[in-house]
């Protein structure tokens, strides 16, 4: 097992779980609300920047909440542009994303890089709980897995409440929502705030995980998250069981990280990474249709044999 050392698997899982939060964010905005929220990149960096500043000030746990709050604010602005001012959703995301670049720079004191050193992070705090050797090694993974599990359960619970159902209906049938007593502006706002809260949290975690915040951290994040989401939705085939469907999104994110790790091990040059990502997304998107195609071809071949036999018998 030289090819995939436990180390690599562990890192892939840890990062996969953190990225899974962003995938969950897109699950809410893209799959549930049917809105293309392109502010993800900026919001992710915002979460990282805010989290880094608060962590450096010595409050790593508070940093998580601060990033969530920052994410909510960002989501609120995106939602406001869409609902109250009628800006198209894609455009609203791009506008917010652009504006966030400057805000993120400002948060980081107008430097493009902010290292976190000489202070605790949530990961070192968790690590310090026990001196056991296995804990020293796996604490981060356990912590992230527990956190994600909590969040998955929360989402599952939330989507079952009346508000959650209204949000789902908003994305599923605009006409029905108009005929019900749901205010789509409200549900869209709540949904986007919730989604971006998770993006912000992911940013905060990755900052503390890497012990640095970078202005370009979020670039391409939306593609990665979308890829993870699509892989996840392909696995679950959008099954009716919400809990399974949500878990698959995280599974998709971890799988995506795995594939990237393997690509890294295969010494794929970093320049080619975007292409690898694109190919993964394309395969994930095409998989269901390809599967159907293959099944149809098989059925056709079998039917043809049958037909030939039938006509031969008929000729006799």
């Amino acid at each position: 097992m030289n090819f995939l050392t436990p180390q690599i698997v562990q890192t892939a899982l840890e990062v996969g779980l953190i990225y899974g939060l962003v995938a969950l964010s897109l699950f809410i905005s893209f799959s549930i609300l049917d809105i293309c929220d392109l502010s993800t990149d900026g919001c992710y960096t915002l979460g990282c920047a805010v989290g880094a500043v608060v962590t450096i000030a010595g409050h790593p746990v508070l940093a998580l909440f601060a990033s969530v709050a920052a994410g909510i604010c960002s989501g609120y602005v995106t939602a406001l542009l869409q609902t109250k001012f009628g800006v198209q959703s894609i455009l609203a995301g791009i506008i917010v994303n652009t504006g966030l670049y400057t805000i993120n720079l400002a948060v980081m004191g107008f430097s493009s890089n902010l290292p976190i050193f000489g202070t605790d992070t949530v990961f070192t705090l968790v690590k310090g709980i026990s001196k056991a050797a296995w804990w020293q090694e796996w604490s981060s993974l356990v912590f992230l897995a527990l956190l994600l599990m909590l969040i998955v359960l929360f989402i599952k619970w939330f989507l079952g409440t009346r508000l959650g159902l209204s949000i789902r209906a908003t994305g599923d049938s605009p006409a029905m929502v108009r005929a019900s007593s749901i205010n789509p502006q409200f549900t869209v706002t709540v949904g986007l705030c919730f989604a971006n809260a998770m993006t912000g949290l992911a940013g905060s975690l990755i900052g503390q995980y890497n012990k640095t915040s970078d202005i370009n951290l979020g670039t391409g994040m939306v593609t990665i998250a979308l890829a993870s989401l699509i892989i996840g939705e392909t696995i679950s085939r959008k099954s009716g069981n919400m809990l399974w469907r949500i878990s698959c999104v995280i599974l998709g994110s971890c799988l995506y990280r795995f594939i990237i790790s393997i690509a890294l091990r295969l010494k794929v040059p970093t320049e080619a990474f975007k292409l690898v990502s694109a190919v993964i997304v394309a395969i994930a998107c095409a998989a269901p249709a390809a599967k159907d195609q293959i099944a149809l071809q098989r059925k056709k071949a079998a039917a043809m044999r049958e037909h030939r036999k039938m006509s031969e018998e008929e000729a006799k």
Binding site: R162, L165, S166, R168, D172, S173, I182
Partner: peptide, 14 residues
Amino acid sequence: GTAPHMTIEENLAV
């Protein structure tokens, strides 16, 4: 008038 990806029960709940 209905949300196709939600169950009958969820539609009625909405």
